[in-house]
Design a protein around this nucleic acid. Structure first.
Lengths: 226, 226, 226, 226
DNA sequence: GATGAATGAGCCTTCATTCAT
DNA sequence: TATGAATGAAGGCTCATTCAT
């Protein structure tokens, strides 16, 4: 339920941990990032002090700088850590699929939603959106590493669906917004404004309702009055 | 030497309430807000200094405090100023409508999109989203004054559409996300990450494509394979 | 005995100064520099904090930054303020003189020595020497603005003396070291190591003794056993 | 993997006092000092970190503290190491000489200059001058161990030369400045400001030119117009 | 002896806010 | 009203020094 550390943190220190003052070796950077993620998410980047991060990770302020050269590097590290699994997961589902895109889209959405149970999965994207203005390099990194992989893949998925006649003639690029947008808004409303549907933030229901409409709307023969 | 406000500030205050030559009268606060909006949007709240706002509005730093008691009050003022027209516009379209909700939804979306040509319409909501964490009172205000008016209204619109048999049996609350989400994502991608479809940020195309799918998906008889 | 401010500080505020809280207008930067000079001289640049400078100038720490953008800018300002009078004074004595250089050298040395009564005249050059390593831009500035004016001028003075047969055939460039070096060493020993001749730091005696030897050594007919 | 010291560290400790294979034995402190000298000279004391010194000496940061109790102790050690040979060399030349001081002065200057080919000889004095303010104890040490031996010795040398009628009636204490000052200035200009005569930093030429003038100026019969 | 992770004090710099004029 | 000099609190970052291993 916690980080998927890029370092094999546990393997390094397999023996029973001694109480207070142990060199947690390579686990430390990840612990710092965990603390940073929690605080950045809760209070925003600007309002979080390095000292808070350090304290929350059980270190002194100076120690943070042993692992990250600057406060901004924490943000960058956070994004970098989240990037690989995210993008890979997404792409592994979509990769080179041919046929009706709807089952794949459902799988994709379900995966995203189930991952979203823990707070950490959407935390980074949200952080990136919020801080993009103040840290354009990081926004750029996220764009290059995540968005420009996931969006084109989805676009291609839809495009081939159109070409294969599995779904209606739609603009694939724009349709990607129709696929993801509702989920994003749902999460945003909930986490930014604490606005939830009456019976809670049930991602499953949201996805069911959303895909019900979306998939019907993509039916080839569907024709509508305006 | 004074900056000409980009908003027709005079129009806001059309009544002849200035004695003889009061300098742009009560337009001043509005000019300050204009400056603040531009800077907050561009650089974020935290990275914008009061002095920058003052300079950009053609005032001295101290003068800003004649109109606004604190920096945060600028944000609040910005939101407050944007709230009334936004909510009213939205509600005036939706208010107590009975029948197929789709034409109304189209009108609503078109209105939003056409207003969005200028940067200032989505600027405030985006600002609020970004700064909600740091200024919960303001998020709360926005929620109370805008979201909790617009969302329930849309929900009701959809609900009565379902009840009247004009659209399929969907969850109205969740369907609101399906209506608005794609537009929001479209704008966010464009403005935060500079990701646009190949032929530019055409809101019209987006809305056409989006509503094409959405409305088809809402057709009462539409039934889909999964 | 104090600063030769480049700003007409007194002229700005001619009326009788009111007690505590007066805007000292353009005098402030100079006051800050005075404080900085004293502290940098006494404790070195690195060991002096901006807060000390501020306190010594009767300001808050933040106020220093109203006048100087950084701590290093204080050093730069110090040097810049000292540069113009120094170089000009020196050059005005030497400028385009023709004939026996010795009287001019005496005048030059006397001027330097008499100026050296106050602490501030040699303070800046000493500061520059000490901090040259840490602030190469400043060393460069001093070099360009002072040294590369004064040294070539003295070199030319000596060169024409040699050509005119007023002094012996010496290497003018190297002879400049023979002219200035003893004075510099004298001051350095006194101020860095508190080493003074038995009867105090009498610059006059030093110059008399030094020029006595130097001028004799420059006599055209002088010929020596080794 | 260990750095080869640029100084013949072994030569310092020629006696066979190492058991079998003690790693470079007591050379370690010397290597640390070598590294410190290089870095202090290049970047100044304050801007050099202990870690840099350690790295440059091929040790860990902690190991430096096995040999020197503090950073300042490095400076002290540097000075202490340089003191004995310097002072002794100087004094051995001058000690109790009777007669015309000029040949001795030439020998003294030549020795200093030839030693100055390597950077290390003047490095310590220059370091001391620069850091004297921040480390008064060290300045005091240098003064007591070097300056107060060398200067009085030179003074005595000149004094007996005057008494013996070998040179003109000059103030011996002040004349010491005339002897050493030019060399010091020459080196300072070159190393602090990179100002050299047209044909390079030829100490030989400088000394020839300088002593030519000086010795002529000290001639007993020399009498000059002012 | 040797390592290097960790500490903690300290300094430069920024900026919202105040207030004498 | 309006100014802008001045304040003071706070935060990012560095680095000499310590200490468990």
């Amino acid at each position: 339920m916690r980080k998927e550390s890029s370092q094999p943190a546990e393997a390094v220190n397999p023996a029973g941990d001694s109480p207070k003052f142990r060199r947690r070796a390579d686990a430390r950077p990840d612990e710092v990032l965990d603390a940073a993620l929690a605080l950045f998410t809760q209070n925003g980047f600007a309002k979080t002090t390095v000292e808070q991060v350090a304290a929350s990770a059980g270190l002194s302020k100076g120690a943070v700088y042993l692992y990250f050269p600057s406060k901004k590097a924490l943000l960058e590290g956070l994004v970098r850590r989240a990037i690989v699994p995210t993008a890979d997961q997404a792409l592994s589902v979509i990769a080179g699929y041919r046929g009706d895109p709807r089952p794949v889209i459902r799988k994709f959405m379900t995966k995203a939603a189930s991952a979203a149970t823990g707070p950490s999965v959407f935390a980074v994207p949200k952080l990136v959106m919020r801080e993009a203005v103040n840290a354009p390099e990081i926004a750029q990194m996220y764009r290059a590493q995540v968005l420009e992989k996931v969006i084109p893949a989805l676009t291609a998925l839809i495009a081939q669906g159109v070409e294969g006649g599995h779904i209606r003639q739609v603009n694939p690029e724009l349709t990607v917004r129709s696929v993801i947008g509702p989920l994003m808004l749902h999460v945003m409303l909930a986490e930014v404004f604490a606005i939830q549907p009456d019976n809670g933030l049930e991602l499953e229901s949201l996805i069911d309702n959303h895909l019900g409409i979306l998939f019907a709307g993509l039916e080839p023969e569907a024709e509508v009055k305006k």
